[in-house]
Nucleic acid binder design. Structure first.
Lengths: 235, 235
DNA sequence: TCAACTATGTATAATGT
DNA sequence: TACATTATACATAGTTG
């Protein structure tokens, strides 16, 4: 634009004024912070959805609000699917500046082969435990499996008729169980198919602690992003 | 604004024109799609970072590019931390996906992409826990998962205790494992405290097939978001 | 808290190098 | 493939109801 100056003052008839330039640091006022969080959360979820549709991509988003609340989004329905795709990646491919092209092709070959093999085993739950290369990964895996077991136990309890109901939880679970039967097939496997049809976002509260596997930063391929980050915020 | 019409034509001296109104559907041109993906990926990562800093929140973002590449972002350094916090949450609070009905175009899309989908399918691991129909079956599954966990624990122990070295990886991993134990408690609960200090983003490629723990879909708090979603895209 | 509203700040589609 | 430009479309800070 040759003339970046706004001409709005010509047309303005409002006393409220527009936004100010935002400083990139934690918003100290709790009220404002919460408000901003709410607005931006919606914005980013929208962006994620758009990215998923426009580019035919699977996107997962998890946010822990300042209050401790959780909000998540998954373009393909269940965030677990996407998280697992992340977790399940062989270590070698997780990061690391891409070394040599030969290596790459080799790895791809290997993967393609494995993929073909695993196809036949798909009916069974056979996590590729053997592929685990780090304790960290193992921890994540274990968490997932534990969660899965808990779910199964819930289902089992339902099926057996026992109600291990926990307050409202009970109803929810029943509903889930029902749904689970009806939609099992239709929901299985197909990812975003050009539809922004399935998505979800939800919130709940608590600060409940949790297990967290901390560790050193295996900074792998973050340099590029870091660069962007720095540039943007002049760090 | 009283006068939403742009006055740019007054000042314009360029022949390149600005952007057009974007239609919310998969970009068919592969080149454009890739380009858009790249740009928007950066944009959303930036947004995520801003949200994290401004609102003192932990944010995790995972994206699978159309090419199969992976990009991820975590405001607090390692995405695993955030994933774990997510996974650890009680099921009832997680929420679920939604079944949307917009069959017409969808079917067409489906046909067009069937092959690609089945390939995609392989990427997920499909334990189909949802399909469990009997307590017995559930029991079997559970047993299987338990075994898997035991194997994982064994692996973990091994990794924690020693060798298995993977070049430089070794030291890092061991350190990580150790830390995990020590800091499990101290790390619980407190999120990023005003620092945009740690973050990372990385990419890699592969199509590897693997495992996934699925569960029943508990749709709880998605209505609000769904509303927004629909409103935005006029579904 | 939640829903507008307005003026601006920002992201980005289209294009060229 | 990445970077630069420009006009616009879109997101959102500040404020009111």
């Amino acid at each position: 634009m040759v003339f970046p100056i706004s001409f709005s003052f010509f047309l303005s008839d409002s006393p409220t004024m527009g936004r100010k330039k935002l400083t990139m640091r934690r918003i100290e006022n709790p009220t404002s912070r919460q408000l901003t969080y709410t607005k931006r959360k919606e914005g980013i979820i929208k962006k994620a959805g758009e990215l998923a549709v426009l580019c035919d991509t699977d996107v997962a988003l998890i946010m822990f609000a300042p209050s401790g609340r959780l909000a998540s989004f998954a373009s393909n329905g269940r965030i677990e699917d996407i998280l697992l795709r992340f977790v399940d990646r062989p270590d070698e491919l997780r990061g690391g500046p891409i070394n040599h092209e030969e290596e790459l092709e080799e790895k791809l070959d290997k993967l393609t082969r494995k993929q073909r093999e695993s196809q036949e085993k798909m009916r069974y739950y056979e996590p590729n435990v053997e592929k685990i290369n780090s304790a960290l990964e193992a921890g994540v895996y274990q968490q997932f499996l534990t969660t899965a077991i808990q779910r199964i136990q819930t289902s089992k309890a339902k099926l057996l008729g026992n109600q291990l109901g926990h307050e409202r939880t009970e109803n929810v679970e029943v509903q889930a169980a029902t749904m689970q039967m009806d939609d099992a097939v239709s929901l299985t496997g197909h990812s975003a198919e050009g539809n922004h049809a399935r998505m979800r976002s939800n919130m709940d509260e608590n600060q409940s602690g949790s297990s967290s596997a901390a560790g050193p930063h295996l900074s792998l391929g973050f340099i590029e992003s870091q660069k962007m980050w720095n540039k943007t915020w002049n760090i």
